Amino acid sequence: MTVEPEGKELVITRVLPAPRELVFKAWSEVEHLKQWWGPKGFKIHVAQWDFRPGGIFHYNMQSPDGHRMWGKFVYQEIVAYEKIVWVNSFSDEAGHIVRAPFSDLIPLEIRNTVTFSEINGSTTMTLCSGPINATEAERSFFEGMFESMQEGFGGTFDQLETYLAQRDDE
């Protein structure tokens, strides 16, 4: 079952100087994903990886000072080299959905769609994110965080771009 986001969505587009197959691989293979996903300076530790519709990516992010936050993707749809759809949540170590440690108004579930298209060897990657099963207050808070989320994803996608440049031989 696919659930569509409610309200306004965050949309971020980035053109990456890498072929679409390599960009997709960076998202779809855990050894690649853990090299660039998350805030700058954080290390990703993978607890569970099952890249298929209905599968789960359960991980924790460790800050440079040792603080850990858990997160979880539940994949909904995967079209090789074209699209990945997942619901993202904060979680506990057991994988149960929990509130974000920094705000009670962050929606519990965010539906994300990332699409990939290639032109002349470069890949246009577009991420669309929106809350699902959210209260009006949560939707409003999410929409108020767009600028902050653009900065956060900008840093994460900078890491992806650097990682892809290092993997150019594949």
Score class of each variant (00 low, 15 high):
Asp104Cys: 03
Ser117Asn: 10
Lys40Ser: 14
Arg167Asp: 10
Thr2Gln: 14
Ser140Cys: 12
Arg14Cys: 07
Ala100Ile: 14
Ala165Val: 11
Glu136Pro: 13
Gly38Arg: 07
Asn112Lys: 06
Val74Met: 05
Ser103Thr: 10
Gln159Ile: 05
Arg111Pro: 09
Val114Gly: 01
Ala165Met: 12
Glu21Phe: 02
Val98Ile: 11
Phe146His: 13
Glu9Asn: 15
Asp50Thr: 02
Trp86Gln: 15
Gln48Phe: 00
Val87Glu: 14
Leu33Gln: 02
Phe153Trp: 08
Arg111Phe: 01
Val85Phe: 07
Asp158Asn: 12
Gly152Ala: 15
Pro17Asn: 08
Ser63Gly: 12
Gln62Tyr: 02
Val87Tyr: 07
Val79Ser: 07
Asn120Phe: 00
Thr126Lys: 04
Asp158Gly: 14
Thr2Asp: 14
Met61Lys: 09
Ala165Ser: 12
Gly144Pro: 13
Phe42Trp: 15
Ser122Leu: 05
Met149Tyr: 15
Arg52Ala: 02
Ile12Lys: 06
Asp169Pro: 01
Asp50Gly: 02
Leu160Pro: 03
Ile56Lys: 10
Pro39His: 06
Leu10Lys: 11
Pro17Gln: 02
Tyr75Asn: 04
Thr156Gly: 15
Thr124Trp: 01
Lys34Pro: 08
Arg68Leu: 07
Thr156Arg: 04
Met1Ala: 11
Phe142Cys: 12
Val85Glu: 09
Pro5Arg: 09
Pro107Thr: 13
Gln62Thr: 13
Thr115Cys: 11
Ser117His: 01
Tyr81His: 09
Gly154Ser: 10
Asn88Ala: 09
Ser103Arg: 02
Gln166Leu: 08
Phe51Glu: 08
Ile119Glu: 10
Ile97Met: 08
Asp104Phe: 04
Val15Gly: 04
His32Arg: 04
Arg139Trp: 10
Ile119Thr: 09
Ile44Thr: 11
Thr156Ala: 11
Lys72Gln: 12
Val74Lys: 04
Gly152Asp: 04
His45Trp: 08
Ser63Leu: 03
His67Arg: 14
Phe73Leu: 06
Glu151Gly: 13
His32Val: 15
Lys40Arg: 11
Arg167Leu: 12
Leu22His: 06
Thr162Gln: 13
Glu170His: 07
Arg14Asn: 14
Pro101Asn: 00
Ala100Arg: 10
Trp37Lys: 06
Pro39Trp: 05
Leu16Gln: 09
Val15Cys: 04
Leu10Arg: 10
Thr113Asp: 00
Ile106Gln: 11
Ser103Gly: 02
Val79Arg: 08
Val46Ala: 00
Pro101Phe: 09
Val85His: 06
Arg99Glu: 13
Arg139Thr: 05
Asp158Met: 13
Gly130Lys: 04
Leu108Asn: 10
Pro53Asn: 05
Trp49Val: 08
Phe24His: 01
Glu151Cys: 04
Ala134His: 03
Val114Leu: 06
Leu33Ser: 00
Val46Cys: 07
Trp49Ile: 13
Ile132Pro: 03
Met69Trp: 02
Leu108Val: 05
